[in-house]
Amino acid sequence: MVLLAVSFICFLIFRFTGDPVLMLAGKYATQQEREQVRIAYGLDRPFYVQYANFLGNALKGNFGKSYISQVDALDTILERFPATFELALTAIFISLAAGVLLGVVVSIKPGSLVSRAIMAGSLGGISIPTFLMGILWVMLFAVYLEWLPPFGRGETVQIGPWRTGFLTLDGIKHIIMPALTLSGYQLAVILRLTRAGMREVLSEEYIKTAWSKGLSPFTVIVKHALRNVLIPVVTIAGLSFGELIAFSIVTESIFQWPGMGNLLLVSIFETDHPVIVTYIMMAAFIILAINILVDLLYAWLNPKIQYN
């Protein structure tokens, strides 16, 4: 249902955003040539026919061919998917690990100098836009320190249909900066969420119970407090993971990362409608799928919720 709505809206929007025929037939085509192209691509037919055709094909897994490369739009995107997925995965991993850890530190010693520095940093993480952060990382690690490569994905290994950068040192070096950039905002959000949650949970009665049992501070904080805090944190992290996959456009273009976001950008410049529409459908699908996964995870974390 959601997917249907998304498909309709994006189809509608692209009716009014530039005529792909101009692009397809070239700048110097005659009027006659343009009409030929229009008919060849079925762009002369009424809107609802085009839409019905698109839907029918989409259900069969056929999202049409890219106007530019004449390759299946879905294949083009899926080929780019591993790069984006790995980037998003690394980013969410960084933001979860660092965000929760720092959030716990801040909540245990709220007044300390370290905590204040972390909180100030998190404010930066929320307010510095992604492109600026990316450029700053490049300046620091690639230009001054020359530790990390500034662009590209480096060496990759092909495993079946999946092309991974995790298995080579070069690939890992390449992913650090983009992942840091992409994770910045989420990290700050998760940190603040963890801190707020910890503050609330640490004053709960069952934490008093845990202390009164003689448990170590580590057990009280990690087993008894953090587990309760993680319920909302995982929800947010999960939902934002979908967004990271779908909208890592800015980061990918800064680091020339060969992922879906970069592909989308190029396709928009070239008015490559099938690719854009397919991309948006993919994004909607991914976010929906992750929503379902998060719901399941939520049930697992929170015993009060059970799905039958």
């Binding site: 008093k208 009164s212 049992k213 015993p303």
Partner: peptide, 20 residues
């Protein structure tokens, strides 16, 4: 704590950890 001196609290609803 716990072994020599144990404590129980007022509100049994909130003094047990809900996730275990």
């Amino acid at each position: 704590r716990g072994a020599g001196i144990a404590m129980i609290f007022q509100e049994p609803m909130t003094s047990l950890n809900p996730v275990y």
